[in-house]
Nucleic acid binder design. Structure first.
Lengths: 117, 117
DNA sequence: CGGCATCCAATTAGATACTG
DNA sequence: CAGTATCTAATTGGATGCCG
């Protein structure tokens, strides 16, 4: 694991994995899809390359995503969910549905434009 | 709402509500229970009074919790979930189950001691 | 009891430039 | 393309003291 801190409850443990600033969005975009770094940048435009790299490294250290580097020129790196990462999908779907419900309730148009929602 | 920022997807909106440092733990402790400030302090000992107040104010501004102040001496304040806050319970349960599963997989004893788990 | 005000230390995040 | 390095700006969080 990334840290060897102790948690006082399972909720705290879970949020230590997905509580990072862009982690849920990153994971969500990797559901059923392998993406390259530049594709993730486009998917999460608010994250600077530095931030994106940092979050990806933590997700990798926590065993939620897999990073595969191809030794080619120009460089190519692919990110995808591990089995542990896939076990979070129900929670990610719950967050998505809650957010969409919240938008609907207020008549706010869902701003998602990509097919992955 | 607390902020009038725009979100690029429902996941982002949802995490803006529960992404705060102690928010999921606070909400979890309020499931089926009304707690006073000092009880929440005991439930979330890692949060200083200042931090706890801040998180509670944001949760209140977002409409997830209700704050009832009784004009008595000594002061008494009670916090509880609103209907919107209760709609998050499935997600909170998902987080708890994922965390507990993660503990089990590694043979780490579940550190929860309170009945609310 | 349930906070708030203030000050300060520490952490985080953005901007920019650069590289294999 | 996929980052890293450096510097700086902004934010966060802790400690302390005080109050109705």
């Amino acid at each position: 694991m990334r840290t060897n801190q102790t948690f006082s409850c399972p909720i705290e443990a879970a949020t230590s994995f997905i509580g990072g600033k862009y982690k849920t969005i990153i994971l969500w975009h990797l559901v059923n899809e392998t993406l390259r770094f530049s594709e993730l940048q486009r998917a999460v435009p608010k994250a600077t390359p530095k931030m994106l790299t940092q979050q990806l490294r933590e997700l990798e250290a926590d065993g939620l995503i897999r990073r595969v580097v191809y030794p080619v020129v120009p460089p190519k790196t692919e990110y995808s969910l591990t089995t542990l990462g896939e076990s979070l999908i129900p929670i990610l779907e719950g967050l998505r549905n809650w957010g969409a419900y919240y938008f609907d309730e207020r008549g706010i148009p869902n701003p998602c434009i990509d097919g992955n929602q």
